[in-house]
Design a protein around this nucleic acid. Sequence first.
DNA 1: CACTCATGGAGAAACGTATCTCCAAAGGCT
DNA 2: AGCCTTTGGAGATACGTTTCTCCATGAGTG
Lengths: 385, 385
Amino acid sequence: MTAAANQSGRRPTTSRRLERAGIRDVAAAAGVSITTVSDALNGKGRLPDETRSRVREVAERLGYRPSAAARTLRTGRSGLIGLTVTTYGEEPFTFTEFAYFAEMARAATSAALGRGYALVVLPASSRHDVWGNIALDGTVVIDPPDQDPLVSELYRSGVPVVSDGKPGNCPVTAWVDNDHEAAVLGILDHLSEAGARRIGLLTGTSTDTYTRLSTEAYLGWCAKVGQEPVYEAYPAHDPAAGAVAADRLLARPDRPDAVYGLFDPNGTDLLAAARRYGLRVPDDLLLVTCSESDVYAATEPPITTLSLKPRKIGTTVVNLLIDAIEGVDSGTGVDIARLFPPRFRTAGNGPPPGTLMPTELIVRASSQRRSPRTTVSPPRPPGEV
Amino acid sequence: MTAAANQSGRRPTTSRRLERAGIRDVAAAAGVSITTVSDALNGKGRLPDETRSRVREVAERLGYRPSAAARTLRTGRSGLIGLTVTTYGEEPFTFTEFAYFAEMARAATSAALGRGYALVVLPASSRHDVWGNIALDGTVVIDPPDQDPLVSELYRSGVPVVSDGKPGNCPVTAWVDNDHEAAVLGILDHLSEAGARRIGLLTGTSTDTYTRLSTEAYLGWCAKVGQEPVYEAYPAHDPAAGAVAADRLLARPDRPDAVYGLFDPNGTDLLAAARRYGLRVPDDLLLVTCSESDVYAATEPPITTLSLKPRKIGTTVVNLLIDAIEGVDSGTGVDIARLFPPRFRTAGNGPPPGTLMPTELIVRASSQRRSPRTTVSPPRPPGEV
DNA sequence: CACTCATGGAGAAACGTATCTCCAAAGGCT
DNA sequence: AGCCTTTGGAGATACGTTTCTCCATGAGTG
């Protein structure tokens, strides 16, 4: 049997269970060749509009859906983007990163969908066979650790990788991050202006970029203005440890009169600790925490938060990745740098192009000595407690 | 050139850009056939251990990674599961569902990964071409609306569908949901026991299963105990509307002395509204809200919450789906019902098998007249305000 | 010895698409 | 009339697996 014969009448005479219509069936029903069907449906080739619409009509009538697997095999494009997140233990992401990650993933999903891609959520700790079993056009990596073997392997096998968080020592295609140093300095200045004399920091013990850069910025600022650093560090992935650390910080003999917490739960942790020690916020203690949650707008008092703008990050990361996917001939070393807008670019020629995104400080009552009117008016004047 | 010749020495003499090693390369390097390589790597066929390990070694050395696309094309299995969520407007999921969805998705991801599958997040509103471009082994649908065309099409094309939320009128393979009626009744009883005389409800205007069943349970309870219903409904997908509705509820002439809020932000909304009206919680107003967030453990006072246990739901949904995927010969009408454990099953023979999952009421100070000691001890005795 | 089996492995046919190459026919031009 | 160009479309190959079928070979067995 020749391929041609095979092509026209493939089905065995005994009609077996119902199978999905393939491109061959459409071609047969429309009385044209496979090529014509493919061209008509994909808007390629040179075909008169009449043929094109007729083929489309037949395809519609048969309920034809092209096989994603076959298309992927043929074109080398799956339309799938991996979204990788470092894991601590069993869970896909940590407690403190939760809101950030959720927001970021949401924006990333939207952005990808808008350009015809879908996101696959893949914890870095996934069994290797899961990674290998999925055809990915590219990968977004959130906060990769130094020398991440996963990133290295992806990069080596030609899959574009864009990281959220400046990579320590990984060969990524590009990266996006907040300007953490600027953010911390902005907060410290803000607190100083509000009258803080000794600003404390609640930070983490892990070595990821965010924690490291933020802490360094704090220490640098302390050195510059001549303040003795006052900080407590705790394992941020442990939900319970934050409350303990907050307590420790306020129990110190050199108790700070203002605190910045690097992680989302620190706001409530610090607020609770302040209550325990009879400290009024903001009168006795100024408070700022990094958080994406708007519950801090409704706490008593409302707490000033730093937003890392995860939505912007997610959108940017995905767009950079898709630019790389679609702009590179996959193998030929096309200059990727050209794809990225010059603004925000940090390094001109060296290692991977990075984009710094701004943060946003949402100032509320907790970081201002004279609290302005808040949306929720207090039940009675803030007199003696 | 015959297929055989093609098979052995396919590469053109001019070595082009570096290509990933294929199964052919491994076969050639190991001096065996393609079949043997495939069998050795997949643990199939009859091969002596010596051959198996040798082939594996060669594959490892060449950095061979099987093509996911080719495997999917051949086997019809992609290892991909769609996670669909109904959308309101542009965003993949609504504000109120946020924490629930995030937790559920996290658990679902873990469960899927544990069984070798990965999750693809796909808003129902995605462009059709995105849906069509992905080879899905099955789909999880969150709270499908009645007559969801998407679900119908998936089901028709043979893709197993399991829904989170009892489907209104969709042909799903199976579904999982909380026992919303029991949950609401439990809360109402709890509030009654705490001394509530008139219990109000903050509910939504949408027609999804959760809102509908919960509201019906409330109304039924009112009818039974002879209380006039006191409730306000608002469009739950609008973040700002909740505060307004909470305010309306407490401003009514027949103001309730206890309120249950169906959506996550209702807790803070109600707390803020109570403050505005000078109502003390729990003294003047008992409060319960449905929420997955633990911020309610740290509010002043801590608020009793109902957890829908999204993690359990996510895990169960995925496991049911994968059972269906792996248990059915895709086309032959194998009895799916047999796959599901008899306990929890609602209907025996009729429409799709459903599983009811329990909820959990986390009782805190806001719903108890005599507040027991909380973890955060108040700064001073709870005397007059 | 003439069998039956078990063992180890090779051949080749799909899976369903995209696309490269090529061909026929119909005008248009000199 | 002969040649070039455009239009419309068909053929066939390749993408990289998995798997069904089948063939040697050697060992056991009556």
